[in-house]
Design a protein around this nucleic acid. Structure first.
Lengths: 228, 228
DNA sequence: CGTGCCGTTGAAGGTTCTCAACCGTGGTGG
DNA sequence: CCACCACGGTTGAGAACCTTCAACGGCACG
């Protein structure tokens, strides 16, 4: 089955001392497979905390504020593991950006079943810390950077995660729209577009079609990202 | 010893099935006690990941962007456990806001010693997820909310953590300055001050001296916070 | 009692948002 | 195969919100 094989890939990412087949079978029983053919919300019942393993594809995690405002708090790609809380100041939903396969686990049940298996908690912990550190870096951008720095920072960060290095350049096929980038950086699509134009004029990037971006000077781009 | 007793309090927060005295002793050996009498940076050697347990007091976790810009990514109080990474897009430092006691552990060594004790990873995981969810909510504010909503959201959030309920009101003794609030909300001290004045004029809050805030109408304040 | 820092208030300026029009691409149907 | 349409992206002008610069007020400390 496709879902079982996805689950196997998930398990392979976890370094066991001994393969905990009992726990694996137990987790398999509470796994909710999710598959989307294209863009769209990933159905996750409200009111429970979820752990979601992205098998393949690309997703955005959206927070809704009042007045229909949307903030993308994270993008997640194949191999990522993310947490969606039920009780937060804002309501969260997970959306696919392309064809995506995922497994969702109710957090409480997942933790109950892995309590005696340190390898699971360990990998969960390390993923959570990665997500936390990424979210903090995002907060710095949202709080203290101008539009150009935010876009530069976004491109550099995406290049590290899904870019394909080619010599000194780097090719990036962005799975998200300008609107998604805006919703992620706390800016409007118009501002995103203007900053793309600026970076193009400065010779730092080149764009091909809607989704392809070539970083012509990744080092200079990083310098404009306002990092330290 | 004061530090040992602090470490005991830390251990008491972890629900053991059996008291892992060996691991406790092992952790005690890698614990770096930190104590500040007042405001000031908490000395943490750069270049390593740290886990810090705040025994008592109040702290701010600061990220530095280029150009001397500072963004406070989180406030932490007694009982909190936080993670500080060495390799991130920005450099982080932890500052005390008042008399503070803490224990710092090198993350890698901590995890190595607790690997076989699920209770530790479990509590670390749950704290990390809390921090992640809080950081995401902060990102929504920084990305999509105006100054009034950010301050209202800040006050409501602080009231939940360190407020003292008194009837329908809530008294809040803020350990941080206006500058700290501004650095946390991505705003200037002037804007913070103006928004405090607005909320005062609206009858939602009352201020006494520099640090005391009384939430006269917590429900209405929450409505202005832009939550959903 | 003076000094210094933190907080408050005002006016001018800047960056981004909003509104609007236009363009280019990709997909669909004739 | 081509024309058309719909959507996403680009560019421009004016408005809004926050910042910057500046001055003043007030509490705490020496």
């Amino acid at each position: 089955m496709a879902f079982s094989s996805l689950f196997d890939i998930f398990l392979q990412g976890i370094p066991h001392s001994t393969p905990p087949t009992e726990i694996s079978a137990s987790l398999d029983r509470i796994a909710h497979p999710i598959r989307t053919e294209d863009n769209g919300i990933m159905p996750l019942e409200n009111g429970r905390d979820w752990l979601v393993y992205i098998g393949g594809g690309a997703t955005k995690l959206i927070a809704n504020a009042s007045g229909g405002r949307e903030q993308i708090v994270a993008f997640h790609f194949g191999g990522d593991l993310l947490s969606i809380p039920a009780d937060a100041s804002h309501s969260y939903s997970l959306w696919a950006l392309s064809r995506t396969e995922a497994l969702a686990f109710p957090t409480a049940e997942f933790l109950r079943r892995t309590r005696m298996e340190p390898a699971f908690d360990n990998i969960l912990l390390s993923r959570s810390l990665t997500a936390l550190h990424r979210c903090r870096d995002k907060a710095v951008g949202l709080g203290r950077k101008n539009a150009e720095e935010r876009l530069a920072s976004f491109l550099v960060g995406m290049a590290e995660r899904i870019g394909k290095a080619a010599g000194r350049h780097c090719t990036l096929d962005l799975p998200m729209s300008r609107r998604d980038i805006g919703d992620s950086l706390g800016l409007t699509i118009e501002t995103i577009s203007r900053q793309f134009s600026n970076l193009r004029k400065a010779g730092l990037i080149e764009t091909q079609g809607r989704s392809r971006v070539i970083l012509r000077a990744p080092a200079q781009l990083a310098m404009r990202a306002g990092h330290i």
